[in-house]
Design a protein around this nucleic acid. Structure first.
Lengths: 224, 224
DNA sequence: CCCTATTGGATAGTGACGGTATCCAAGTAT
DNA sequence: ATACTTGGATACCGTCACTATCCAATAGGG
């Protein structure tokens, strides 16, 4: 198929497709002449993946580039792909420990939060790399909560860890180990990036329900 | 306290504080002369809230403006504040139904996804406004999943709805109804915005653990 | 009372990001 | 033959969250 057809079928402009090729998100079509190249279903599929990661996952282009590079590298196994994805989706918190410009008290709060996070993971027996970005994400949240006067205790976290463990267990089970690599790889990305949004959305909906039951039935909506 | 002291204590530059005042995130200090104004602890507290919403919640400044306006309006009750927050944190998906420029097949996929979401919420008996943004967020995710060849069935969602309901129930329980309004309001924001990040972080950590157990113990990390 | 530093207020500039737009020469379809 | 399409390169754009600069009016220290 020609680029114009790829554009029509994907709903993206030719400019955007060229941009993705430039950025390494999409391989070039196979050239059939100096001014012509042929694209196939795999390009369309890739564009759908890229758009899902951009629109639903809200991932920056640079993160998607790292992910698709891993997807295209047959030497990268499932668990490794998982780690690369986790690292790519960040967020890359610049932790004020190790930052010499940060004030000392803030750095101390961070160190304490990181210790708590590390202790929690150890206690749960979870096998998680030391440098998993989610550790910093959690620590960052602890710091913010405490600075706002909401201390975080392991008890508060119990419902979250239970929920997270149950969902994660289910998700990994859906990635069939015997499926062809390209399918398994997509399933991995789908459960890490897209189902994270599913969980978030359902969490918000459940909160609204709980809030309605607790704080009354008046309409919570905007009026603008 | 003077603005320079507020700057020191908050860790933000004077420029940034001025910017937040301009943008309506922070009230002006009480003027004590043409070139002097006095700030107090409430300003510092507000800055901590704003930074938490920015850094942890990654909310745009415009969303924070809407939230703090509701916080400062004593007529806004808890449930209403909840709705405003939900609406502010978006994401504001532009749904291709109602968009006349969208291709018809995509619009049809969206309508189907919205129907599924609405049916799910009805089935669960959750009290959620029709225009809750999380409905569109969930529908958007369904569309993306289906376009990638991963059909979404109610069975797949069961673990998520259970987890979301349990967590939400716990969270709303932590917002004490008899606390002073400013405290209750902060608690509401904390559980919707910050604890959402807690859930996300723990979800990712649990996934890494599940992935490690399923796909082997090799190091999933980046090597750069 | 003088002189330096700080403040409020206004306006302009910056860097990252994710595209868009334009141009061109070399083709291709009719 | 002639209008359209393509690949490739380069420039440009709008949004966002700050950041820098300037200015006139003080405030505070000596």
């Amino acid at each position: 198929m020609k680029i114009s057809e790829l554009s029509d079928r994907s709903g993206l402009t030719i400019q955007t497709i060229k941009y993705y090729i430039r950025e390494g998100l999409l391989p070039k079509g196979t050239a059939t002449g100096a001014t012509r190249a042929e694209y196939d279903e795999r390009h369309l599929e890739r564009l759908r993946l890229v758009r899902a990661l951009r629109e639903v996952g809200d991932l920056p282009v640079a993160a998607i580039r790292r992910i698709v590079a891993a997807v295209d590298d047959a030497d990268v196994g499932m668990h490794r792909l998982f780690g690369i994805t986790q690292y790519a989706i960040g967020p890359h918190v610049d932790a004020p420990d190790r930052d010499p410009a940060a004030p000392e008290d803030l750095a101390a709060q961070w160190r304490a939060a990181r210790r708590d996070v590390d202790a929690l993971i150890r206690e749960l027996g979870w096998r998680v790399t030391d440098r998993a970005p989610a550790r910093d994400l959690l620590a960052q949240t602890f710091v913010a909560l405490r600075r706002l006067g909401f201390p975080v205790t392991p008890d508060d976290l119990l419902p979250y860890t239970r929920a997270a463990a149950a969902v994660a267990e289910h998700e990994i089970g859906t990635v069939a180990a015997d499926a062809p690599r390209s399918r398994a790889v997509h399933a991995m990305l789908v459960s890490t990036v897209l189902y994270e949004q599913v969980l978030t959305a359902l969490h918000r909906l459940a909160q609204e329900d709980a809030s309605a039951r607790r704080f009354g039935a008046d309409d919570p909506g905007e009026t603008n």
